[in-house]
Design a protein around this nucleic acid. Structure first.
Lengths: 213, 213
DNA sequence: AGGGGCATCACCCAAACGGGTGATTTTTTA
DNA sequence: TAAAAAATCACCCGTTTGGGTGATGCCCCT
């Protein structure tokens, strides 16, 4: 009997491809592949025999952290987070939230399978690029655990990312430009930076705002 | 006899998964899956019977456009470009460079297979999200065909993206901050924008600078 | 030889930005 | 319900930006 896995990944093609790959190994069975955390939770709410959840870090409007936080208090199905690029800023919150594994899309099939097998066997698996592993501790040290922007701040930040001036943002949101300034000042403090370019850059990294498109 | 396809995609896991998926259809055979344009060209340089090239738009240090430009003057193997998100700014140059198809990672397997089959049959296939297809022409209209930044401009832009001020950039590059200003003004003109946040955003979209990490 | 693009720097000036301090009201949370 | 956090706006002030104009030297290409 093979273990059942579900995949959460927003890009359909990648999602189905990964399912194909995993099913092809004969070691696991991907029973479902969905695009959002909500869909996954709907599946988990019903009776099932899922042994592991493979979740992409960057989902459309959310991150794997959402799943981790909500799942932590439910059944203890191990969650493995999949991400495109190595980024300590992203990893740290996943660790705190209880991720059992961390895998990269850059990795080989062998490592991928090995990671999943290890977690299924009750262990943890964090694949790390060799080049960075040495400096990992310092990476984590410089990482702030949880950056919580309020709704207003997030809304403001999204407009800042479009390149609008405070005055323009104020007009579109129907608020005083002094209010916008206050929000931005707060954002700088939380993101530990001192100008809008840095703020947008950090926000993209942290997945606080959508892609720049 | 099925058609041979090669895949160019920088993320190994995605690359191999796609190969698995395509091979599973029984309609095509993925003979090779590589991570860089150079590797692909090495393959094409030797005798082969490749009928189609599937190339991810965003490669590590390059884009599919590089392949298109160099391949245009070689054998006429059709090239299908694969991209994560719909972005007219990215599509247009691919079209000019002779891409025979455009597919999205958001699409379904059915559309994916259909696209490849169409191109193999000698046609062209450009999958477009319905929502945007209406406004597509205006999208293209607002797109400038080739943005050529000089080395100094590109160098400056990369530093601007880090959030440094003109004075700081000037110091690190050993130049007057007036020179930096001149470069930035030129960048704004070429990128059709009027502040550094927009410039960085556009540059990331156009793949003029690396990811913000 | 001359024109064009590139890189470099300078000056002016208005607008925008970022930091500091402080205040009021509403909402959330303990 | 009382305290804390969030949202709103205001004023001051020095720094930075972005636009305009102009100048010099360099190198490439015709």
């Amino acid at each position: 009997m093979v273990d059942n896995i579900i995949i959460i990944e927003d890009q359909q093609l990648v999602r189905d491809s990964l399912a194909c790959l995993l099913n092809g190994t004969q070691k696991f069975a991907v029973t479902s592949a969905v695009g959002t955390v909500a869909e996954a939770q709907a599946l988990l709410a019903r009776p099932h025999d899922i042994s592991l959840i493979l979740c992409d870090y960057n989902l459309k409007q959310e991150t794997a952290i959402k799943l981790l936080q909500e799942q932590r208090f439910a059944k203890d199905i191990p969650i493995v987070v999949l991400t495109s690029v190595f980024n300590a800023v992203k990893i740290q919150p996943c660790l705190s939230a209880g991720a059992r594994g961390f895998l990269f899309k850059e990795s080989s099939i062998e490592e991928f399978v090995k990671g999943i097998e290890t977690v299924l066997a009750g262990g943890t698996y964090f694949s790390l690029p060799e080049t960075d592993s040495i400096h990992l501790e310092s990476h984590f040290a410089s990482t702030d655990p949880d950056i919580r922007l309020t709704n207003s701040e997030l809304e403001t930040l999204r407009w800042v990312a479009t390149g609008m001036s405070n005055k323009q943002i104020a007009r579109t949101l129907g608020k005083s430009s002094e209010t916008i300034k206050t929000h931005i000042t707060k954002i700088f403090q939380k993101l530990k930076c001192s100008n809008r370019t840095q703020a947008v850059s950090k926000a993209v990294q942290l997945n606080l705002i959508d892609q720049l498109d």
